[in-house]
């Protein structure tokens, strides 16, 4: 049953909505211009053949998508992306967790280590990539120097298709540790000390406490860090561009780099848009899956 509202009430409701929208307008405009419009435009373009400027010329339906699914290069970039994610995300979280557990101990001079462990957060991807480029350099880099010193032969870290993805992943792990470490350390420090004191009195071992108290109590933070790292790994671009440019033989041509090359080097905007849409759907599904599967095991207080 609908009840007609008196005119007065309708008017106040409308003006309430108007002033509400007014307050929201800055973020609506920002989100609209920089997120919603590009997203819709990308979806739109993925159905068109375009000229080099990205102006749509001809509607091709799902043509770009069907071409992609039969393209070996596309599957190669998917493989590189999945490999990159699997190499970076678990390793970053594991190392950062280890460092955070160490830095959470109450020892003298721990502030120095905390600063050191989180320092990579303050470094730009470009600067760190250049550092790693020098370290991977086959003739002057420290890795090969070390290998030669122990009698092994040097490795073409960034030029050998066998090692390139691993090398880029290692550099990425190093770059991401700072942020992950800081978030995990914050999570650890939020755990009530008395929980451990009570466990100490009960006589449980360090490992039991880690398994039964620390990990469950840290699970919301781990979950957050996991999702952020996963999305970040899927969107990696900077270090690929600086270290390998997607090479050698497309071994490090991860999806975002492939999109960039298609759109701005090959001027194939339609196909690039289709890949971007596929990436968007993949990340959306994975995040949704993570929420569904993992959240049940997360203990929020």
């Amino acid at each position: 049953m609908t009840v007609a509202l008196p005119r007065e009430k309708v008017r106040t409701r409308l003006s309430d909505a108007a002033s509400g929208l007014l307050y929201l307008s800055p973020s609506i405009v920002l989100f609209g211009v920089f997120l919603v419009y590009p997203l819709l435009r990308t979806i739109y373009l993925s159905f068109f053949r375009t000229d080099t400027q990205g102006t749509p010329l001809e509607f091709v339906g799902v043509g770009h998508y069907s071409t992609l699914f039969t393209s070996a290069a596309f599957w190669q970039s998917i493989q590189a992306t999945v490999g990159f994610v699997l190499l970076t995300v678990p390793l970053t979280i594991l190392i950062a967790l280890g460092l955070a557990l160490l830095a959470n101990e109450k020892l003298k001079g721990m502030g120095i280590f905390r600063t050191a462990f989180s320092a990579t957060m303050g470094m730009s991807v470009a600067a760190s990539s250049v550092i790693w480029m020098f370290m991977y350099n086959p003739s002057i880099g420290i890795f090969n120097r070390f290998l030669e010193a122990v009698g092994a032969s040097g490795v073409q870290w960034l030029l050998d298709p066998q090692y390139a993805l691993l090398s880029v992943s290692l550099a990425t792990v190093w770059m991401n540790i700072g942020f992950t470490f800081l978030i995990l350390l914050g999570g650890l420090q939020n755990i009530d000390r008395t929980l451990y004191e009570s466990a100490d009195i009960a006589g449980t071992s360090y490992w039991t406490q880690l398994r039964a108290i620390t990990i469950p109590m840290l699970s919301p933070t781990l979950f957050f860090v996991g999702i952020i790292s996963l999305i970040n790994a899927f969107q990696t671009f900077g270090q690929i561009d600086l270290l390998t440019k997607g090479g050698p033989t497309n071994a490090t041509n991860v999806i975002v780099y492939a999109i960039y090359k298609d759109a701005f080097i090959n001027y194939n905007v339609g196909s690039a848009s289709a890949q971007a849409v596929l990436l968007f759907i993949a990340v959306l599904l994975l995040t949704w899956l993570q929420f569904k599967l993992v959240e049940r095991k997360v203990h929020y207080q």
């Binding site: 008395t194 929980l195 009195i201 108290i213």
Partner: peptide, 19 residues
């Protein structure tokens, strides 16, 4: 060690494991 002293303790905030 605390566990070798054969005692139990009740904390002000109870120190219960929420999970």
């Amino acid at each position: 060690k605390p566990s070798e002293r054969h005692l139990s303790m009740v904390f002000q905030n109870y120190a219960l494991y929420p999970h």
